[in-house]
Write a protein that binds this DNA or RNA. Structure first.
Lengths: 156, 156
DNA sequence: CACTAAATAGTTGCGCACGACTTAATGGTG
DNA sequence: CACCATTAAGTCGTGCGCAACTATTTAGTG
């Protein structure tokens, strides 16, 4: 069926290949979606999407954070976060209130329900870690390479 | 400002951390978006989005492919591809026609314009490769780890 | 103090991404 | 042949993700 484009074709070094399978960027794109897909059933039980889960990870670490700080932590724009936070607020997991000392800023605070979700989420990282099935060394290498990549790609 | 959660906290081995920065999955998610963002200005000049570019990569390799085969190559559902292919067709880059031998199937064929775009796209992988700034060894390691990860995560 | 520039969050429009579903065609099976 | 499960593509609804823009508040400057 799909043996046609398998394996390792030769690539000139002067000009990079246009072959899909040669490209790290596609591996990255596919891996990110595959991992998110693996999260889905686990997060469904918590009533969360993956980005919502990431927001809660940040808030469980440090509550009462501004949208700006949240965006810095997750590398997301306010145009992504604002509606997402509204949905989490509608679901009763957090509250948004203008800061009195700076009315431009909005403090995101977990409700008791949002804070309580943390216990139910504790098993998630381990389940995902198991599913990823990398050795601790591979995991560390991957994280290190991805951070280097992000640093390089976002500079300038 | 953000030195508060930096660095390397200790993590118990029995139970994985809920810290954002400890998680490979977040590194993956952030890296994927960062790389796509780096592509954006290059692809804007070609009038393409990143997923559209991926579709063309496949078609430049092997024209007259079905939606199903395209989905297998990119790991995307027909519900994602159908509207995307419609947009590419509206932009004059490809045509979709039912196969006569199997009327369920739709053959995607590049137009001359779509095929011609390949030359203008040749510089893209190199520009991205440079921006990613990994050594060939690091690039190979990353691809290898990501493929292993995808294989593990999607099994069962 | 008046006025402008910067910062913060939000809105809008568009294009994915995917689950759930629909429609149509095909391939068995008895 | 009739029937039904399977396959292929597409539609619909929801939630990101981001560029471009807006509204409001704050900071800085003469």
């Amino acid at each position: 069926m799909d043996g046609t484009t398998d394996g390792s074709r030769a690539t000139t070094s002067a000009e990079r290949s246009l072959l899909l399978d040669d490209q790290l960027c596609f591996a990255l794109y596919a891996a990110s979606r595959a991992v998110t897909a693996r999260y889905r059933p686990l997060l469904d039980e918590l009533g969360l999407t993956y980005p919502q889960y990431l927001v809660l990870l940040v808030l469980w670490e440090r509550d009462s954070i501004s949208v700006r700080e949240l965006g810095a932590a997750l590398q997301l724009e306010s145009s992504t976060l604002s509606p997402l936070l509204k949905r989490l607020e509608a679901n009763g997991l957090l509250r948004r209130e203008r800061r009195s000392d700076d009315e431009r800023s909005v403090a995101i605070r977990l409700t008791d329900e949002g804070a309580g979700l943390r216990d139910r989420a504790r098993a998630v990282p381990m389940a995902i870690g198991d599913a990823m099935g990398l050795t601790p060394e591979q995991d560390a290498t991957a994280k290190q390479l991805l951070r280097l990549l992000v640093a390089n790609v976002t500079e300038r």
